[in-house]
Structures are given as C-alpha cells and as structure tokens.
C-alpha cells in the first residue's frame, strides 16, 4: 500500500533522512521506533507532504505521490495524527472532528462522528467544549478521531503515547490495534518501543536518519540489540 524508496529530506542544508526504505502492506500495523531525533517525525511529515523531499520516492496505493501537496494527500487516503496532537485549540471538540472530515459534506459525516463518539465516549461528553481545555489523553483521542474522520485507508500516527499515564497509553494502543478491524492500515511511530512492537505486525528501527534494523515485531522484541537499546534490558 505504501512504498518508500531511498527517501531523503533536509532542514535547510542539514540532511536528516539519508535514504529511507520502508513499506507497509494493506491491513498491516507497522511501527517505526527509534530514539530522540532519529528522524521519525520528519519521515511522517514527508509522507504527509508538509516537509520537502530532496531525494527518493513515495508511492501510495500504486500511485507516485512524492511531490503531491500536503492538503491533497488525505483525499488519496492518507491521514496523520501528528506529534504533539496539534488539535485546533480555539475550536470545540465537535468542530475539530467536523474539520477532520473537511473534504466531505455527505451524510456519512454524522455517522462517522457518532462512531468516533462511540470509540471515545469522553469526547462526546465534551463535544461542545473548547478542545484546548482537554487533558493530554483526551487531546490525543481527539487527534486520532479527527484523523479517522477523514476516512483514511492508511493512518500515520506520531507518538500517540507521548506524555500519557500508563493506563491511557494502554487504552490508546488498544484503539490502534482495533483499527485493523476498521480496515485502516497503520504506520505507528513510537519511542515506546515495547508498547508499539507488541501491537504491530512488523517494525523498523531508525537511528540518525537511517533504518538500521527491520523485521517482524516478534523478531524485534526478541532481538538483543533492541532489548538493550530500547526496551531497557
């Protein structure tokens, strides 16, 4: 579904992705783990078209989209719940969700919103409140729900567990796992390698702009190098 080949990206003159190869098949949950500053967020930004690509290619559902502008990628089925949630803090919870479906005006919008509220009942309670007043966990739920309102075939998730209490982390990972049943393919970026690998099918390890290890989630969890570097034993 998603094919990334030799992808390079830079901030100004400083190259931070040095040729990433990565693929995600339809129906998979694939995770990218790696330390601070490895380039995970930059990779997802390239995929969403909000960060310039200076080499390599991205193809999605059989079409090249390396240089498609950012606002046109959701129409092609690629959504992102970005790092730091990035919800619209000046708008209500419901308005955030409605804007997630900005591309649509049909009756399914209401239906999708009802489903989002079913998935995250707390958002329904707070639907008319300003989204800026939500707690971190609620904002994360809103960010995921907003991305799903765009009816993606593939969802990019950037560190959904960041800064959350363990019980909320578990809840968020459960939701991500549940996306399989909704036919949404997932590319999950995480520093919480253990949590991510335990729900993923496959994984990639990124270090300073390169993929260093890849394999099935089971293999990676058992890999001594990963256990040492990311799993803390």
């Amino acid at each position: 579904m998603l094919e990334i080949k030799a992808l390079k990206s830079a901030y100004g003159r400083i190259e931070v992705l040095h040729g990433i190869d990565l693929s995600v098949s339809s129906g998979e949950i694939v995770t990218v783990v790696g330390a601070n500053g490895a380039g995970k967020t930059t990779l997802l930004k390239c995929l969403s078209g909000v960060q310039p690509v200076i080499g390599g290619s991205i193809s999605f559902r059989g079409e090249t989209m390396t240089h498609v502008p950012g606002h046109k990628r959701l129409k092609r089925g690629l959504a992102q719940s970005p790092e730091g949630r990035q919800i619209f803090t000046n708008l209500s919870v419901e308005e955030n969700l409605r804007l997630g479906a900005f591309l649509f005006t049909d009756a399914r919008v209401d239906q999708d919103m009802a489903e989002a509220f079913q998935m995250f009942p707390v958002l329904k309670e707070k639907r008319n409140l300003n989204a800026g007043g939500l707690s971190g966990g609620q904002q994360q739920m809103l960010a995921i729900a907003r991305a799903l309102m765009g009816r993606p075939a593939c969802l990019l998730l950037d560190e959904p567990s960041m800064g959350l209490a363990p019980i909320l982390v578990a809840q968020i990972f459960d939701v991500v796992k549940g996306l399989k049943a909704l036919d949404v393919t997932v590319l999950l970026v995480e520093q919480n390698a253990f949590g991510a690998l335990s729900i993923a099918d496959r994984g990639y390890v990124m270090e300073t702009g390169r993929v260093t290890i890849s394999g099935s989630a089971k293999e990676l969890i058992a890999d001594p190098r990963i256990r040492e570097a990311y799993l803390g034993h």
């Binding site: 950012g70 606002h71 959701l74 970005p82 990035q86 619209f88 803090t89 000046n90 997630g100 991305a147």
Partner: peptide, 12 residues
Amino acid sequence: NNRLAAQLVGIN
C-alpha cells in the same frame, strides 16, 4: 490556529 493540522485535514 494550526496551519500544519489544517493541511493534514485537507485544507488548502
């Protein structure tokens, strides 16, 4: 409010 997020939801 948030230009990045606006692009991600498909706003030009």
